[in-house]
Design a protein around this nucleic acid. Structure first.
Length: 553
RNA sequence: GCGCCUGUAGCUCAGCAGGAUAGAGCAACAGCCUUCUAAGCUGUGGGUCAGUGGUUCGAAUCCACUCAGGCGUGCCA
């Protein structure tokens, strides 16, 4: 509908010889201002040096529109043009929801384009902790949004199985292994403290006994640790139904010479220089005020920046239309450096979009939960999933915008009560399922009747129409959320939708055996609410329960 | 010090490509189950949108500065 209004207004402006403007169509907060509104006349007023209301007058008088869809057009306030949409339009949309089913809300703005989303990308040095959850759930939802907007999407996981961190992992496992024989064996100062390291060591012991004692080479401990941790990470992701298409290994960038080439490119373009035995990358242009960064250490090893740059070049070479990364706020500088580095070499970095999310503070009621993985205690993502379930986990991680710091109240998320906002949405879905079950009991031939067409004009009560209007906003909401990569908008929308449904439910009985036509129309309305809720749930990743019952009072 | 993010109701947060009386949930208070699930609905109270200036017909939204919090500012990733 928005698109239709944009079209007729711009045609009208053209006809009147007014300068072209991008037409902004909005849904007013208050429905007394109609179903849609535009401020076009106010935007034109300045250039035409005329009163907004006069311009609005001109536009409305010359507008050509389908009178079956638009009931009334009014000028209001300072020069808003308000459109009152005919119920017929909404009834058409209702049929559309029922026929498109799981596809209702999908948009084609990015059809034919490809995108790559890289996220999670934790190195296999430890299990995923609860804090990772934000990025994981956010990424899952954004991935869905990208697909809903038409992209053909590749989900990617980048990891590093070489380098310093993995060596520390190997040394940690090795020390725990030796401690099985000699409790006094020294543990490396910067080693990984978690109990999972002991588990890995014990696993090695149970299979190989003392075969690896006094071993000079820790490679075996590294690879075993890596395999163990990766298995753990993948298990956790699987619980959340996340499947990456590509696991991209940093070491492949060394093997195919990409790193070497990058080094020599920087050198030949005089973007890098040698100082104190290390190779430094210059900060130029808008980054001039920043410190130059080391890309190759005096030891000859490369810092993380270089492979990261090579990796992004590799992705650019795969010709995606959109390359997207998700990082926590602790990595802001890293991605800037990466983009700056490859930008200096002339790569088109405009295709790369980076989402930064702020950090999470976990709380149980008022108490802050310490997340330090460094010294032992460690709240893992598995623990969180175990404690509060995967629906609540995903909902809580997604419900806030990525830019705000997230306060995650584990007590609240755990609570199986009306305080918990997840249930508000799911309950609406379960309630509809309850109605449908009941319909089958009262009217045995209901399935057959539902296949026949119904005149929706019978839906003329204000709660019915409000609910219906809310449903038809879904495609716009999905499109808007996918353009800004903000899945929390879907939650905001679903909340409103659930509210409309609950209000409708409170005021209207659906199953009225004495009035079969009204029953059918309302049942179809319920079916479409169910469909929209389910589609929204699919995007944010939560389940659509058929029933919800409290186990205890 | 510098860079990025944030500051909206008692609490947690929406709203921010400028638009009509600033919203939700929780908390508080008062109501609603002989009705398809009360994990629901209805109502009341609660705000100098951190502050100050600026741009504009119009600012929570844009700009500048100030104050407060988070993250970063490693030859760690």
């Amino acid at each position: 509908m928005k698109i239709y209004l944009e079209k007729i207004i711009s045609e009208c402006i053209l006809k009147l010889g007014y300068p072209a403007k991008t037409i902004q169509i909005e849904i007013p907060k208050d429905n007394k201002f109609g179903d849609f509104t535009t401020n076009t006349a106010m935007l034109l007023a300045k250039e035409l040096k005329s009163h907004p209301r006069n311009i609005a007058q001109q536009i409305t008088e010359n507008l050509e529109y389908d009178k079956d869809l638009i009931n009334k057009i009014e000028i209001a306030g300072a020069g808003f043009i308000n459109f009152y949409i005919s119920d017929n339009y909404y009834f058409r949309e209702l049929s559309k929801i029922l026929s498109l089913k799981n596809d209702y809300g999908k948009s084609e703005i990015n059809t034919g384009k490809t995108a790559n989303l890289e996220w999670v990308s934790a190195n296999p040095t430890k299990p995923l902790h609860a804090g990772h959850g934000r990025q994981i759930c956010l990424g899952k939802a954004i991935a869905n949004l990208l697909e809903w907007s038409g992209y053909k999407l590749t989900r990617e996981y980048y990891y590093n199985d070489a380098g310093n961190q993995m060596r520390i992992l190997g040394m940690s496992v090795h020390a725990r292994y030796e401690q099985i024989f000699n409790p006094n064996f020294p543990f490396p100062e910067d080693g990984y403290q978690g109990d999972y390291i002991k588990d890995i060591a014990e696993k090695i012991y149970s299979i190989h006994g003392d075969k690896y004692r006094n071993c000079e080479n820790i490679d075996y401990f590294i690879t075993t640790g890596e395999e163990y941790n990766f298995q753990s990470i993948r298990n956790t992701l699987e619980k959340l139904n996340i499947k990456h298409d590509i696991f991209f290994n940093e070491s492949s960038l060394y093997e195919n010479g990409a790193i070497e080439k990058l080094m020599s490119d920087f050198k030949s373009k005089k973007l890098s220089y040698l100082k104190d035995g290390a190779v430094w990358l210059k900060s130029i242009g808008e980054h001039e005020h920043e410190k130059d960064k080391v890309i190759q250490k005096a030891t000859g090893e490369y810092t993380y920046r270089l492979p990261d740059m090579a990796y992004h070049i590799a992705k650019l070479n795969r010709n995606y239309d959109l390359i997207m990364d998700i990082f926590g706020a602790d990595h802001v500088d890293t991605y800037r450096e990466v983009l700056h580095g490859i930008g200096m070499l002339g790569y088109d970095i405009s295709k790369i979009k980076v989402i930064i999310h702020q950090m999470v503070v976990f709380k149980t009621g008022k108490e802050k939960v310490k997340m330090s993985g460094r010294y032992g205690t460690f709240y893992s993502l598995d623990d969180l999933l175990e404690d509060i379930g995967k629906d609540a986990t995903q909902f809580f991680f997604i419900m806030r915008g990525a830019n705000s710091q997230l306060e995650f109240d584990i007590e609240l998320a755990k609570e199986q009560s009306d305080k918990n906002p997840v249930y508000y949405l799911q309950y609406a879905h379960a309630r509809i399922c309850g109605i449908l079950r009941h319909a089958g009991e009262v009217i045995p031939e209901i399935d057959k009747l539902l296949e026949t067409s119904v005149d929706f004009k019978i839906l003329n009560d204000k709660y019915e129409l409000e609910l219906l209007k809310q449903l038809t906003k879904f495609p716009d909401e999905v499109e808007s959320a996918s353009l800004t990569y903000e899945p929390h908008k879907i939650i905001t929308y679903l909340n409103k939708t659930a509210e409309c449904f609950h209000v409708f439910y409170r005021n209207n009985k659906v199953i009225i055996p004495s009035n079969i036509n009204l029953t059918l129309a309302r049942l179809k309305l319920c079916l479409s609410v169910k469909q929209v809720l389910k589609n929204g749930f699919n995007i944010i990743g939560i389940s659509a329960p058929e029933r919800m019952e409290r186990t205890e009072e």
